[in-house]
């Protein structure tokens, strides 16, 4: 059972949050993980999530928004079920990162930070994701796909379309 009445989160996540705040010398330390985990569950950080997290950590909502808006993985608008994040930073760029991005745009018919009409995919050009030696790389949600070519991208996207992709959370 959650410590917060009427939590908007699933019982599992609420319980996780209850636990999370006990781990640190100062409970506010749970803020960044909570925002990310809330986003993982809801798809984005909703106003309701901001409120509840502020309440859980005894913070002002403004304070939560200040932090939320700082981190580039956190978003306040829904993304697609599968958020395709293509790295175009230097190592990837040298090995075709922009080609991969271009290919994704064409295949998905959407641009940076856009969502397909069916809500299945969204696309994002991201900074270095720490896969430089296996470039070019992208992440679909949290799952890494590296050494990409346009053909491999097609396979990956198809896999998710069929619901067979991993969904690390």
């Amino acid at each position: 059972m959650s410590n917060v009445a009427n939590t908007i989160f699933s019982p599992e996540l609420a319980a996780r949050f209850d636990h999370l705040v006990t781990l640190y010398p100062v409970k506010r330390s749970a803020l960044v993980p909570m925002l990310l985990y809330a986003q993982d569950e809801i798809g984005y950080v909703s106003d309701a999530a901001v409120s509840e997290i502020a309440q859980r950590l005894s913070l002002e909502e403004l304070d939560v928004r200040n932090v939320l808006s700082y981190y580039s993985m956190l978003r306040t608008k829904p993304a697609g079920k599968y958020n395709v994040q293509v790295c175009t930073n230097i190592s990837c760029m040298l090995r075709g990162g922009y080609t991969v991005l271009e290919h994704c745009k064409q295949q998905l018919g959407i641009g940076h930070k856009e969502v397909t009409p069916d809500g299945l995919f969204s696309l994002e050009e991201v900074e270095c994701i720490g896969a430089c030696c296996w470039a070019p790389a992208m992440q679909v949600n949290y799952d890494f796909h590296d050494d990409l070519t346009p053909e491999k991208v097609d396979v990956v996207l198809e896999m998710y379309r069929k619901g067979q992709g991993k969904d690390v959370k």
Binding site: R28, S29, A30, V32, P33, L57, V67, Y71, S72, L74
Partner: peptide, 26 residues
């Protein structure tokens, strides 16, 4: 205790990392 960031290069800087770990802007 393990901790996750949420996308910010600057948070790699040691004092910004501490801020982030304390639940603040990096």
């Amino acid at each position: 205790v393990t901790q996750t960031g949420a996308g910010a290069y600057e948070v790699g800087e040691e004092s910004a990392l501490m801020e982030s770990l304390e639940g603040k802007r990096g």
